[in-house]
């Protein structure tokens, strides 16, 4: 049995079927890429996994436990962390306070939460800007803060939703380094990414969807060569 899997996941918003029967499994310690054109249902899938809303039908199974009906905060406590594509910094709090708030999911005392938060900031390379208000961070800082905050909840499985979008080449390189470091730490990662360079270099396996349905799954090489994937991204002329 896979460490984490989704089975025949369906989400309908009124007449629109955003996700239509997606199934995949992720092994412990893997970096699993989820790709697809805009509007193909990637973020909707993440939202169902992390409990933002329940699926219309289908299952989400994490460590042999069905979590598709659980609330977000329960799922977080079980060990599934996430970042948001549209970043959600706690604006009028400092970077440190953002991460302290997240650390309180595992400890209760202020002293422990603070020291855990400082370690997380160090790990994510945010120590130098810890007293900055989150709302005044540039986009790269905000994306990194999303990761730091999710890491502070000590996830076993981390969902990264386009954490590399909007970064310049140097920042991109640093982001890839950070994601690798998180995996070396023992965290399993599912990553949504549009930047092919990122997803192709770091993923062990990739799952491609279009119009809410699976079109391919395999190693980065296999998926990149798959005609259905090329068609979804570039149109039939290039397939």
């Amino acid at each position: 049995m896979a460490y984490f899997r989704v089975e025949k996941l369906v989400k309908k918003f009124g007449g629109l079927t955003a996700v239509n029967g997606v199934t995949f499994g992720v092994e412990k310690g893997e970096i699993f890429g989820l790709i697809g054109p805009n509007g193909s249902g990637k973020t909707t899938t993440f939202n169902m996994i992390s409990g933002v809303y329940p699926p219309t039908s289908g299952k989400v199974v994490f460590r042999n436990r069905e979590i598709q009906r659980m609330k977000s905060h329960r799922i977080c406590h079980l060990g599934v962390g996430r970042t948001f594509q549209v970043v959600k910094p706690l604006g009028r709090m400092t970077v440190l306070d953002n991460v302290i708030a997240a650390s309180f999911s595992r400890v209760n005392s202020m002293r422990e939460a603070r020291s855990a938060a400082l370690r997380t900031l160090e790990f994510c390379g945010l120590s130098s800007i810890r007293e900055v208000l989150a709302k005044s961070l540039p986009i790269a800082g905000r994306k990194r803060l999303e990761i730091a905050r999710a890491m502070a909840t000590r996830p076993e499985l981390l969902l990264l939703d386009e954490t590399a979008a909007g970064l310049n080449p140097t920042e991109l390189f640093e982001a890839i380094e950070l994601i690798r470091k998180i995996r070396e730490n023992g965290t399993t990662i599912i990553i949504i990414e549009h930047i092919m360079h990122v997803i192709m270099t770091i993923s062990d396996r990739i799952h491609a969807i279009n119009f809410g349905q699976t079109i391919a799954e395999g190693t980065p090489k296999e998926v990149a060569a798959n005609p259905a994937v090329i068609e979804a991204y570039l149109g039939t002329d290039y397939a």
Partner: peptide, 9 residues
């Protein structure tokens, strides 16, 4: 929403 994702009930 961010709060809920950080384990806050």
């Amino acid at each position: 929403d961010a709060a809920a994702s950080l384990g806050i009930n």
